[in-house]
Simulated scan of single mutants.
Amino acid sequence: MRVICWKTTWLSIQTMELFDNLMDSLSGQSYGVIDSFLTSEEINGLVINLRKRHAAGSFKEAGIGQGSGQHIQVLVRGDQILWLEEFSVVEIEQVYYKKINALIQSLNQSCYLGLKDFEFHYALYPIGAFYKRHLDRFKTDSHRKISVVCYLNEDWQATDGGELVIYLPNKPPVKISPVGGRLVCFEADILEHEVLPATHERLSLTGWLKTY
């Protein structure tokens, strides 16, 4: 899949500029970044909710594979995850979903992707944890079109590590620091990527925009 986008005019000027820049990047290089997708208050609210649910034991070790074939492989992936409910009643998660729905509407109107659904999970990478190079699309499931990562790391420094590495065809890899509020989107069936180890816990909301 190659994303081709046209400009949209129905959003607020500030949001439209952010989404237009993202779609220009998706069209040109199959990935894009929006800084300050979340406010500091929204980041803080999501972090509080994440840590509350992690302390309650709701997270589990992330696996490799799909369905009954999924298994834990710590030499490949070391994060802990908690899937968000599709119809969450948590107010701060509703705020996040509202922004994601606006992004989906913009992508559908401007890029004709036919996105109809999404799925997200909280991800917590302990100190030193990583996720080796991989592709997000399953061999038997083509519904994941756009991978989305939104970072929840407050006061993150470049020296903390934990970068997302995106491997571009015939170009050097791109490293993206997991700065709080930053949203990264890329084509799930095209770009391989990995998560590098960090010197602090690394928090995010990770998911996919999907077709049926």
Rank of each mutant, 00 (worst) to 15 (best):
M1N: 13
I4W: 02
I4R: 10
W6M: 14
W6H: 14
K7N: 13
L11D: 09
S12K: 11
S12Q: 09
T15P: 00
L18F: 10
F19H: 11
D20I: 04
L22M: 11
D24R: 11
Q29E: 13
Y31H: 06
G32L: 05
V33S: 05
I34K: 00
D35W: 01
S36C: 15
L38D: 03
L38H: 04
E42N: 07
E42F: 06
G45Y: 00
V47W: 02
R51P: 03
R53C: 08
H54F: 13
A56E: 13
G57T: 10
E61L: 14
G63Q: 12
G63R: 06
S68F: 09
S68Q: 10
G69D: 15
L75P: 00
D79A: 04
Q80S: 12
Q80G: 09
E86D: 15
E86N: 11
Q94E: 12
Y97E: 11
I100N: 02
I100P: 00
L103I: 08
L103R: 08
I104F: 01
Q105N: 14
S110N: 13
S110A: 15
L113C: 07
F118Q: 12
F118W: 14
E119K: 06
Y122V: 08
L135M: 11
T140V: 12
D141C: 03
I146V: 09
S147D: 03
V149A: 15
E154V: 15
Q157K: 13
A158R: 14
T159Q: 13
G162H: 03
V165N: 01
I166P: 00
P169R: 12
K171C: 12
P172N: 08
P173Q: 11
I176Q: 01
S177L: 15
R182E: 07
R182G: 05
E187F: 02
A188N: 02
D189H: 06
D189Y: 04
L191F: 12
E192T: 15
E192N: 12
H193Q: 03
V195S: 09
L196N: 07
P197F: 04
R202T: 08
T206I: 10
Y212S: 12
